[in-house]
Design a protein around this nucleic acid. Structure first.
Lengths: 315, 315
DNA sequence: TTGAAAGCGCTAACAA
DNA sequence: TTGTTAGCGCTTTCAA
């Protein structure tokens, strides 16, 4: 019992005892059994679950990196899961997670299956929904508004004199909020009395390649577009590669905007105009808020971490 | 006790009992406590630890994705860690992991601190070292040989008629085996009776930008290089951007090779000659082998998963 | 095929 | 300041 007290740092022992304990611990190479600790006391679990859509998605892997670093610093261990945008997979993972009696759970996005909601209700542990901001969260929410992100770009496009914008997206595999951004973008354009001339959503994976051939399709149909708002940076880069090949000048002949603040966006000869997502901050804040709740410290329910438009040379 | 038997699927109950149990379980919404199970029985832990250098590194995030998917399928839960190439961070993480009495552990790379080795020795759990192949592994090893990877590219360069190759790398932040690849590359060149004219290792982060200006530096000094072997694809893409800007033709004036099988590498106007890394396979095999060992099934110690040279249009 | 007893290593509560 | 007791929910072992 005394050893337990010393190692946990709860008070009730003399300095001399402490030193004797630590010396023995060191001599024996004693490693506490956290399984027993977490099992014996509901308070002692330092396991937290984090579920992201995909580990190899560049955005979510950044968030995960930041989440894990923060939890490590605060003394928690991260159990991971991924759901590939399948609500059922999230539910399956959650069930498995809860059997470990975690201290809390972090979920990406704000949409969940019915079963997930029931599990969460019964578990009575802190929950953070991150990425998309949920203004009426299950518990805590950290993120941004996709629609605002698109709206901001739409207004910027107008301010830069663009009047005939088009939209290019792709839906397969990932759903990083493209549709909502496009809606926000269109609203901004319409509020300025203009219209989005075309909105092409490819049934393909968003990426360099779909951006490349999608741009070709779009411009063959509507050669006088003066801007394309791409679903993300990789598509925008693909589009720019096609434009460059055709000798179409950016932004003189046509402007280009992406989304995401992709590392590679700074790679082109012309810096891409895009929107950067505060992945690190979302991760850090999500983890910190969960811990605040665990410690019964005050924590805001809804935490907006806005995206930021990064003006480049392409719009 | 009967419930425990039914839920674990060990035999010793009638079909009728089974159904009664499952009905009750369902009615009560009973969720087993794996903490108690793992605590009560050394065999029952399905926690496994995985430590990678970084979650946002595109290669390791792919491996992690594959590892987690495989473990999920086999009924294990993944506790993660990252060490940013700091051996001490790996040791700290491992200590924390072991306090959860995991069933096994996956470590990236083959170099570990003294403390790590001692912990692993005492833990007597299966260990997989993945990424670099360790031919005298602690327990199991899955990966490839960096040097062979470079050697293969060197021989290919020779076979394509290149005689005056240079090397361009960068060391800061990451250590994905660049130096070993360069050694292998140089060996192949020398075996063919040629020499690598220059080897420039920038004190910078490998990436598009360092590839861009590094190429400029290299060619200003040695204008008659007929090939550059880059540390990775992002550097190669940066180099190609510079060459294109200068009107230097690839591969007519100079050939380019990268490493890594970067997504964007397959889409540039000229497909990059590179080496692809079997990240998915490394992850899958690592997880599967760990489980084989846990189940006392036969498993090879040393498992080579070679990289593969992808001929493109740049060499 | 089912059940009873003991114990895993810790912590909460209480006693000294 | 230190120690004792009981119990967390499982699994292992042994008995019925």
């Amino acid at each position: 019992m005394t050893v337990s007290r010393v190692l946990r740092g709860t008070d009730g022992f003399s300095e001399e005892t402490r030193e004797r304990v630590l010396a023995e611990v060191n001599r024996l190479g004693y490693l506490p059994n956290r399984l027993a600790a977490a099992f014996g006391s509901k308070e002692a679990s330092t396991l937290v679950g984090v579920c992201v859509p995909s580990f190899s998605d560049p955005y979510f892997s950044k968030v995960l990196e930041s989440v894990d670093r923060t939890f490590l610093r605060l003394g928690y261990q991260t159990l991971i899961g991924s759901h590939n945008w399948q609500h059922d997979d999230e539910e399956t993972w959650l069930r498995s997670l809860l059997s470990w009696r975690p201290a809390g759970v972090l979920l990406s996005t704000k949409h969940h299956s019915q079963g997930t909601l029931e599990y969460l209700r019964d578990a009575t542990i802190p929950i953070v929904e991150f990425w998309d901001l949920n203004t009426s969260p299950l518990d805590l929410s950290v993120g941004f508004n996709q629609s605002d992100s698109g709206f901001e770009m739409g207004r910027y496009a107008i301010s830069r004199g663009r009047r005939k914008p088009g939209i290019l997206g792709a839906v397969r595999d990932r759903k990083t909020g493209g549709p909502e951004r496009f809606t926000g973008f269109s609203q901004a354009i319409e509020e300025a009395g203009q219209t989005v001339l075309t909105k092409e959503i490819l049934n393909d994976t968003p990426g360099f390649y779909s951006g490349y051939y999608g741009t070709e399709t779009l411009l063959n149909r509507l050669p006088d577009l003066d801007m394309i708002y791409f679903q993300d940076d990789t598509m925008a880069l693909g589009g720019m590669a096609w434009l460059q090949r055709k000798g179409i000048r950016v932004p003189d002949d046509i402007a280009v905007a992406g989304w995401g603040g992709h590392e590679a966006a700074s790679i082109m000869s012309r810096q891409l105009t895009t929107t950067s997502v505060p992945t690190e901050q979302i991760g850090k804040l999500s983890a910190e808020l969960l811990v605040r709740r665990l410690r019964d410290e005050p924590a805001d329910d809804v935490n907006a971490v806005p995206t930021r438009l990064i003006p480049g040379e392409t719009l």
